[in-house]
Design a protein around this nucleic acid. Structure first.
Length: 444
DNA sequence: TCTGGGGTCCTAGGACCC
DNA sequence: TCTGGGGTCCTAGGACCC
């Protein structure tokens, strides 16, 4: 698509005159550099300053403001490798603060819900809107209004792409952000610009096409989204399965991926961390795993779920190939599905002891709770001895931690020094989620 | 010194059954 | 020695997403 046609596609929108009956309109709203934007909402003085947010453990870059991108800071860049650039360019750095981002995300979704009856919250910074009911309007103008309102109400800048399918809406969204001419909103519904949009989209940038498929397709001469849309169905089916074929249909404007208005019940719940300092003892590993299983158990309690099995995994530092390497994992089943942190902790500890080997420097451990099921429907075994006190204890722990912050109260098994805890040296304050200070309790 | 975390779905192959 | 056909369930691994 040349620049002139993008301009005319967005500034003079005749699209609604071309729309065929039965057409759907899906908008993808995507927050720009979401984590960095969320931090800047509360520090207006850095509004135009290069800003980045780091992953857990302050490991690598996971969000970059436009100014930071312009400096050449790559997504996923290890922090220690760009430290000198950061200093030189005076880049503002934050440790990730998911409590803040989750809260800001809710505000954005609440705003979007004012504009469309059906909203799918796709991720923390993206939502699909069903705008089919608004096809008689100028969708571009409508989405500009959405964009303006989100910015005004939440302080978060967004880009919006509109098309007949989710996969096309993703492409429209990407082009909307890439081309300043669009002003952040691009509508492909019923327009003749779809072909041009597909042509200027690399196949690896299509939603559902990852690195491996992009390489395989490239070797077979399919380098653009347009080429993929025109590929042979049977060949795609053979090479990429039904998922790949769905993507191809979506590129042709045939919707195969419905909006999911109610989030599907989650099937697993994972908590894992790299250690701030390597762990070399079984005791240290047990503590870390106890802490992770407590976190994961609290999460499933919040969702009213119980776990039927527990997977524990441990590994050494794969970035130090000169060190002896070892990683292992094991899944143990629980007699009776539970969300009790003590019961799950016992199983997890058994798992750790089964896979732990002496003589390694461990860098990471994690827990995955599996076979999740509604806690209300759990059926005990014949020899089951349910202990109602366990539930009461867990309930009390949740109440305290919800009010005063996570890990205000925790199990002794999680340890006290916790030398393995992750680094978060650049954490921003709890702008939106602080309820009150933890009171000092005096012994009497 | 320092390289994230949390998910989903599909497929192939093996075990087992009739 | 010859040696069917169909089905289910489970798991590991591979692919993808943000």
């Amino acid at each position: 698509m040349d620049r002139a046609s993008i301009r005319s596609a967005t500034t003079e929108d005749y699209s609604h005159t071309l729309v065929a009956p039965g057409t759907r309109a899906i908008a993808l709203v995507d927050c720009n550099a979401f984590y960095a934007s969320a931090e800047r909402v509360f520090q207006p003085s850095i509004a135009n300053h290069p800003t980045i947010v780091l992953s857990n453990n302050d490991g690598c870059v996971i969000a970059r403001s436009a100014e930071a991108k312009a400096l050449g800071i790559a997504m996923g860049a290890p922090f220690f490798k760009i430290k000198s650039l950061i200093r030189k360019e005076n880049v503002v750095v934050f440790s990730s603060n998911y409590a803040l981002y989750g809260d800001m995300s809710h505000r954005v979704v609440a705003t979007l819900s004012q504009f469309a009856p059906d909203v799918e919250v796709y991720s923390i910074d993206e939502a699909f809107l069903d705008l089919t009911g608004f096809l008689d309007r100028d969708l571009t103008a409508y989405c500009r209004e959405i964009k303006r309102t989100v910015q005004q109400w939440t302080g978060i800048p967004v880009g919006i792409g509109i098309a007949e399918t989710k996969t096309l809406a993703k492409i429209a969204n990407r082009l909307a952000k890439k081309s300043a001419k669009t002003g952040g909103v691009l509508n492909l519904v019923g327009t003749r610009y779809r072909t041009a949009a597909l042509e200027r989209t690399e196949v690896g940038d299509v939603w559902g096409i990852g690195r491996r498929y992009a390489a395989m397709l490239g070797l077979n001469g399919i380098k653009t989204a347009l080429a993929l849309a025109n590929a042979d169905d049977r060949w795609i089916r053979k090479k990429m399965g039904v998922v790949g074929l769905r993507t191809v249909f979506e590129l042709r404007g045939i919707a195969c991926i419905p909006l999911e208005l109610a989030p599907p019940a989650r099937q697993s719940c994972c908590c894992s961390r790299s250690f701030g300092n390597a762990v070399t003892t079984a005791g240290g590993l047990r503590e870390a795993v106890a802490s992770h299983v407590a976190t994961a158990a609290a999460k499933i309690r919040r969702s009213g779920l119980a776990a039927g099995s527990v997977n524990v995994f441990i590994s050494t530092n794969r970035f130090k190939p000169e060190d002896p390497q070892y990683s292992n994992a094991i899944t143990l089943t629980v007699d009776v599905a539970t969300h009790n942190g003590l019961a799950l902790g016992r199983v997890a500890r058994r798992a750790v002891d089964m896979i732990y080997r002496d003589g390694y420097a461990y860098k990471k451990a994690g827990v995955i709770l599996l076979d999740l099921q509604p806690a209300a429907g759990v059926i005990g075994t014949l020899f089951d001895d349910p202990d109602p006190r366990g539930d009461a204890v867990m309930g009390a722990i949740d109440t305290i931690n919800n009010r005063y912050g996570r890990s205000t109260i925790r199990l002794a098994a999680e340890g006290f020094g916790q030398p393995w805890q992750m680094r978060r040296t650049k954490l921003s304050p709890r702008y939106t989620t602080r309820i009150s200070e933890v009171p000092v309790v005096k012994a009497s």
